[in-house]
Structure formats: structure tokens, C-alpha cells
Amino acid sequence: MAKVNVTVKILRFNPDVDEQPHWQTYEVKDIEETAQVLDVLHRIKWYQDGTLTLRSSCAHGVCGSDAMVINGHNRLACKTLVRDVMPTITVEPIRGLPVIKDLVVDMEPFFSHYKAVEPWFINPDPPPTRERLQSPEDRARFDDTTKCILCAACTTSCPSFWANGQYVGPAAIVQAHRWIFDSRDKGTAERLQILNDRFGVWACRTAFNCVEACPREIDITKAIGEVKKALTFGTVDF
């Protein structure tokens, strides 16, 4: 397997000493070109500079911990291969959330927007003795939005969210969509009412940045459009 040398520019910030974030450059040698950018960052952290701070967990694109801006695009460091971004790789924290240190941002504003759409199953009917059955067609209706891993790549790529942090953001709308279009759920009207707000779906300006950013390839702007359509026509049957 081919090995390459890469230059990595990282936007660093240490709240104890820095007033402003600054770029720091590292040279990483003899790394496989099929390695993940996450591997490169770990090589730097483990062998060159232990002060580099980043989040990661599963390293396989499932947990959503390591979203960051790689060469200007919101990507998961574990799903981005060196060969696709070399020879110079720039890495920045995701935008629009407060930076705690280096690549770690405060996710709390993101999760509070997520909670605002009541992302849990709502159905006051007593549960049947076995599972609540659903036809394959009804399940397929919201399949796309079940893929979300809450990595925040979409919300932090959104110019509306950058401009106004009160905007609930694409990820929260995707999560709401997952329940709104689920035939077993009865919180539909409640969630639509929450999103029918100038800082709800109506702050979406259809920039499509979220679609480009999503590592799960969810058709996010389409999902947001469907929520807008439901609000406009008063039905989810389309």
C-alpha cells in the first residue's frame, strides 16, 4: 500500500492562553494513503503534540463524534481518507458552536435544539401485547431521516444557523421529520406546531449546504421541504 507524507494545518485554540484561534502546521510522514484523517490526527496527538484536543469514539462513521471542517468541508474525520484530501490537509472545528479547545466544540446549543422537537415516541394509546406493527411502506416513508447520527455536520454548515443560533437547525428538523412521518407516532401536530416558527423550519433558506455536509447522505433539504409542505397544506399524506 502506498505511503505518503502530508502537511496538516490545524486551527488551534487553547482558552487558557489564546485570545484568538491560530493555525499550527504538522508534517506527518509515511502514512498510508487509505488511512483516515482521524488516524493522521491521532498520529499527531500520540507522537508529536499531546496537547492537540479532539473528539472521537467509534472511528467508523456511526457515533458522530468527530465532525470537523476538513479542507473547507464539514466531514467526519473517520470517514475521510488521506488520499482524497492530500497533500495539504486543513482541519478546523465545526462552525457556529462555541469552541472549547482546538477541535472540540460545545455541543449543548445543538442538543438543546434537538430536544426542542421532542425526539421521542409519542403515542398515548396503551401498547399492544406485542410490538406496534407497521407496514414496510409506512416504514419506508421516513427511512432516510432515521440515518441521522447527530454529528452536527449539517447544522454547523448552515449559513442560517451561523447567522442566528436561535434557528433550530437542519439536524433537529431531520429528527422531527423522522417522527412526524412515522405512522405509529401521534405527536405529529405537536412537533409541527413547534417547528411552525420563524426560528423553526421557516429560518431555512434552502442553501443546501446541509445536504453537501451530511456524512450519511440524507436528503436534508428535501426532509425540511416536506415539513414545510405539511405545515402549508395541513397534511402529512403526500
Partner: peptide, 23 residues
């Protein structure tokens, strides 16, 4: 779909922002 009939009980659609967008 079973829950869709429930929707008619709620006033959730419409409003100024909805119609501004539709306009």
C-alpha cells in the same frame, strides 16, 4: 395511516410565516 385522522383536531398549520413562505 392510523394517526392521520388525529391531525384534524389540532390547529398547527397556517400562520403568517407559513403563508409568507408559500407566497
Amino acid at each position: 395511516m392510523s394517526n392521520r385522522t388525529e391531525l384534524s383536531k389540532f390547529k398547527f398549520q397556517g400562520g403568517f410565516e407559513t403563508w409568507a413562505w408559500f407566497f
